[in-house]
Design a protein around this nucleic acid. Sequence first.
DNA 1: GCGGTATGTTTACGGTGCTCACATGAGCGT
DNA 2: ACGCTCATGTGAGCACCGTAAACATACCGC
Lengths: 192, 192
Amino acid sequence: MSTSEKSGYHHGDLRASLLSAAMRMLEDGEPFSLRALAREAGVSPTAPYRHFKDRDALESALAAQGLRDLKADLTDGRALPESAAELGEFAVAYVEFALRRPALFRVMFGNACDTGSEERVQAAAEIHDLLALAMTRVFPDVDADALASAGWALAHGMAYLYMDGKLQAQSVNEVGDRVRAAFAAILAARAD
Amino acid sequence: MSTSEKSGYHHGDLRASLLSAAMRMLEDGEPFSLRALAREAGVSPTAPYRHFKDRDALESALAAQGLRDLKADLTDGRALPESAAELGEFAVAYVEFALRRPALFRVMFGNACDTGSEERVQAAAEIHDLLALAMTRVFPDVDADALASAGWALAHGMAYLYMDGKLQAQSVNEVGDRVRAAFAAILAARAD
DNA sequence: GCGGTATGTTTACGGTGCTCACATGAGCGT
DNA sequence: ACGCTCATGTGAGCACCGTAAACATACCGC
């Protein structure tokens, strides 16, 4: 019945077990290996290959899940931004997601994502559309593509700079403040 | 005399050979391993450990060199930006560096850089100062720290998004145009 | 019940980073 | 010129990794 059911030889729901073990390891900051996942699931080292062609395939599944989680973070309990301030909160949520689950974030964005995984490209497209929609809602007058790229890049860049320690802050709250401040500052700057 | 001098047992300038071999591999897109570097230098697999404590130490040396190269790209043959447009060119140069040498760029920025390498932290600080200086020159009226972070994050984010295929373009020139457009768009957007 | 197939196992290969004990030889003080 | 020392390079070996091929099991439709 449940995923914890074990019938001896057959695991029952190995694919899901592998994914959730991988997710847990990513969030615990442990590096994960296919063999470690197999160990965790109590299964032989090569069993994962029955469910994933190779490591990349498993990572793509993780990435897709992560992208869906990120989208949920950005939409649940929050209306689409209507003002610059709300847009800033959007960015804060984006960066906080990255800082809360940095290893997952790297898996989600940190490679060329060569269209191999259908669910992954779709999840990525949804994020892209969501961000573009948010930007154009708030600033309908400006070149939509360029502005959407700029907004995404700003949040994405701050996420990476804090994840990688190039920018530093005492707490997650402080990071949030800095992200808000950065958004406000660049919107206040006038290109004359 | 030159570094190609070999006296049999002793290599002569192994440290430099390892670094330049690693740099070449990074730029050729090959993944590099300490053992591969040793092979390249015609030396035993463990010889590199006489010059680098571990892989991270070697990567830190590469990162430091990369950061110096990036700084040179941003300063040589270019005055410090005086206008928003020149600031955009600054960002374009930053992104083009990342796209020209993506693997190196990841080594430079893609980890927590735990202050282990003196030359690395200094090189990183110089980049940081340079970018902050550029931003505050152009926009002296706005919160300097926040604006510097925003400008850096914008360029950094665009670099990553294009490197990782989340944004796409036909050519490097087109990427440059998009970066300029993104800068222009966000500077044109008004927080009301 | 039977057979095909999805799933898991075993064994094996070549690669990795890294450690430790050992070999070499360049440079220095005498 | 001699001999020591110590930086540099070697070799064997460990524990891992991703992946492939051949084999074992047991679930499911006929």
